[in-house]
Nucleic acid binder design. Structure first.
Lengths: 257, 257
DNA sequence: TAAATAGTGTCTTTAAGACATTATCGC
DNA sequence: GCGATAATGTCTTAAAGACACTATTTA
């Protein structure tokens, strides 16, 4: 490890042991912007590391759940609430914060795409072009957040927060492309997203723009949800009619269909 | 939230704010045993909740990384080190610990299958038959750990720690079946695991047992690794020879092949 | 009618479930 | 040889990449 001075902030509990000096909740707020994935950062205006860009997080208190802290800090910085928030990871390496023993619980946050706007001291940065250096270990935390989002986007409705109430297939496709940093063939994208069961057509169409009008879709659920089909369903197999005794000492398969 | 008494343990930092009273690292140690997935628990012998079964974790200190604490506690309880350890999640709900504000960083841990043995006060429990109630919120933590393991087992070499240095296909299959709680058709299992690129044949076979001798395999890497192929590789597509201008404002696709 | 954009259909390859068949051991 | 177990081969269905084609709007 790096040599570590005690730092200005320390704490001791009533049993006499050293305790964490504090704990922070730090949201990694991601959103597609101009076709690319961006992260929301604020410039530090109090020591240490004044002037560096950092995640818009802050200190927790004992009465608040960590999500609530992250949510609150986010609202303070952007004026809107997150529509999606999930715990990412906790960073507790000794020396990660020069002030002392201060673990950080990081969150992955997505905010409503319709309220993307510059606000106060916060700014959006393309995740591939972060300013250097970021405060503390925040560069690594951002990396972890991007990775998580990219891994989850196909099998969950996590993109709910990145699309308006209703949206068209091409619109959704551009968001998915920005998140993943990849291209999707239009007709295949439509097929996959429709078959995922995560969205449903509203029956309405968009008017007033050149070209064939696009059908509008909405998410079946706006609560966190995962697409079901992970493996193919059994083909035409002749189901065991006899009371087949298990070959091994396994309980009957209880796959979550 | 639930009403919360302050609890006997409290801390305050040098800036005058309340700080976490302590922080724990709690490993969820999983292993297949008798064909089913088990978790290692210890009986609490100090207040609070004396007598309840709990995860074999303990308090962190400022000089130690959280993984190290989890690893150390695990060794103290089982006599062996974890061969796999990854952060699961952090539990910081107010009131989760009656002693005070004590967040827990949970780890998913797997130990070497060849050293599974009862030891000290620790005992193995089938994850579907946990004693009730577990200490604190440990039942939920165990559930989260099992879910994580089951989700990852196919696309990573996480099972490294649950199999000996070299192993046969039927042996690996039984471990995967125990983890997932499902059955796998033997020949399909072989095909999938071989194609995953995670294992490789050693060229040797097992002797001295009835039946056709089984070929021995080993993991290509014992470091945490993920299977590559997540989507099929492009078929026979006529690659763009011209400098095709992108249709949208997207950068050229940089899919991680 | 032309340009632009959305949507449909289908050819192809790969992944994967099911299961019959073959191989090789100990006794 | 027989029972036991491992390994191979293959038939089938579904998922998914590629791309030609059709449909519907605005200007």
């Amino acid at each position: 490890m790096a040599e570590q001075e005690p730092g200005p902030l320390a704490a001791r509990n009533s049993a006499g042991f050293e305790a964490p000096a504090a704990m922070t909740a730090d949201p990694v707020v991601l959103a597609p912007l101009h076709g690319r994935l961006h992260v929301l950062l604020t410039r530090r205006d109090t020591p240490p590391q004044v002037g560096r860009w950092a995640l818009p997080g802050g200190f927790m208190n004992p009465e608040e759940r960590a999500e609530e802290t992250a949510q609150r800090k986010l609202t303070e910085k952007t004026g809107v609430g997150a529509v999606y928030l999930e715990q990412l990871q906790t960073y507790a390496e000794p020396g990660r914060d020069p002030r002392g023993w201060i673990p950080a619980i990081a969150y992955l946050a997505l905010i409503d795409a319709t309220v993307l706007r510059d606000e106060s001291s916060a700014r959006w940065f393309a995740v591939e072009e972060l300013p250097e250096p970021l405060a503390f270990d925040h560069a690594r935390i951002v990396r972890d957040g991007v990775e998580r989002l990219r891994g989850k986007v196909w099998y969950s409705n996590i993109a709910v927060g990145l699309l308006p109430e209703t949206f068209t297939m091409p619109q959704a496709r551009r968001v998915y492309e920005a998140i993943g940093g990849v291209r999707h063939e239009a007709s295949n994208f439509r097929r996959e997203l429709e078959q995922s069961g995560l969205v449903r057509s509203t029956g309405e169409v968009v008017k007033g723009v050149p070209g064939r009008p696009a059908a509008l879709y909405e998410f079946v659920s706006r609560q966190p949800a995962w697409s079901l089909r992970r493996s193919r369903q059994p083909a035409l197999l002749a189901r065991i009619a006899v009371a087949g005794e298990p070959r091994d000492s396994l309980p009957p398969a209880s796959s979550a269909v």
